[in-house]
Amino acid sequence: MEEVKVVYAFIKNIDNEILMVYNHEGHWSLPGGRVEVNETRTEAVIRETFEETGYKVTIGSLLAVNEAKFTKRNHHALFFTFEAQIVAGAEEITLPHEISHIEWTAMDTANYRMPYYSQGLDKLLEHLAFYSNEGTI
């Protein structure tokens, strides 16, 4: 199986709503996507968030690492979810062939749409993990 690295941005507003995108594969997720060759995870989440939402973000703590095997695609996927904050930009669907909706969603709705965070999205901020890019050695 091919190992695939995927990153997501967990962005919460002052109303405790979560930024979500609806993609053409037919499901809601946090903004994010596949890490490209020679790209760090944080570079990827910044790029993917901007491409999908029009927002520029800064990255905070690593919140979760999940993995799954997708037999139909022959992928072993590793998912990295990072805390992120919007610092610039305006909401815009810049990749309409990939994303059809951008929505600020109540926490309970986000939890329902993304059941693979078994503890719930609201619990992610309680258990921060450390992430460090050690650079090229």
Rank of each mutant, 00 (worst) to 15 (best):
105 T>P: 02
103 E>P: 09
98 E>T: 15
117 Y>K: 05
116 Y>I: 09
120 G>C: 11
102 I>W: 08
106 A>V: 03
92 E>F: 01
130 F>Y: 04
124 L>I: 08
103 E>K: 11
108 D>V: 06
126 E>Y: 05
111 N>F: 01
99 I>A: 14
118 S>K: 09
92 E>A: 13
93 I>T: 04
129 A>I: 06
102 I>L: 14
113 R>K: 15
121 L>G: 04
104 W>C: 13
125 L>V: 13
119 Q>S: 05
122 D>H: 07
107 M>D: 02
104 W>V: 00
117 Y>M: 06
110 A>I: 02
132 S>P: 02
96 P>D: 06
110 A>R: 04
131 Y>F: 01
106 A>L: 05
105 T>F: 01
89 G>M: 13
98 E>W: 09
89 G>L: 11
132 S>W: 00
122 D>R: 08
106 A>Y: 06
93 I>H: 01
130 F>T: 07
118 S>V: 12
120 G>Y: 09
130 F>Q: 08
116 Y>H: 13
90 A>C: 04
93 I>G: 10
103 E>I: 03
91 E>G: 07
131 Y>G: 11
94 T>E: 08
103 E>M: 11
132 S>F: 05
96 P>I: 01
115 P>S: 08
103 E>N: 02
116 Y>V: 12
104 W>S: 03
129 A>C: 10
97 H>V: 07
129 A>R: 13
106 A>M: 02
106 A>K: 07
94 T>C: 11
94 T>A: 14
125 L>N: 08
102 I>F: 05
124 L>H: 07
124 L>D: 03
123 K>S: 11
97 H>Q: 11
129 A>G: 10
105 T>R: 00
92 E>Y: 04
102 I>V: 12
116 Y>S: 10
93 I>V: 12
110 A>H: 05
124 L>A: 05
110 A>F: 01
97 H>R: 09
119 Q>W: 01
124 L>T: 04
118 S>F: 06
106 A>D: 05
115 P>Q: 01
126 E>K: 04
110 A>L: 03
127 H>L: 07
112 Y>I: 03
121 L>N: 09
129 A>F: 05
129 A>M: 15
94 T>S: 14
124 L>Q: 04
112 Y>F: 09
109 T>Y: 01
97 H>T: 14
106 A>C: 10
110 A>T: 11
119 Q>G: 05
119 Q>I: 00
127 H>P: 07
132 S>R: 06
108 D>R: 02
90 A>G: 08
131 Y>M: 05
117 Y>N: 03
132 S>V: 14
98 E>A: 15
131 Y>L: 10
105 T>S: 02
120 G>T: 02
104 W>D: 14
115 P>E: 02
126 E>G: 07
117 Y>T: 02
102 I>D: 05
127 H>F: 13
89 G>P: 04
125 L>S: 15
100 S>L: 08
104 W>N: 11
93 I>R: 11
98 E>I: 15
96 P>K: 08
118 S>T: 14
109 T>K: 03
101 H>C: 04
95 L>K: 15
89 G>D: 14
102 I>M: 13
92 E>K: 14
130 F>I: 15
92 E>M: 10
112 Y>D: 12
128 L>H: 01
129 A>T: 06
115 P>W: 00
99 I>M: 10
106 A>I: 00
127 H>E: 10
109 T>D: 03
89 G>C: 09
108 D>L: 09
123 K>T: 11
131 Y>Q: 02
115 P>C: 00
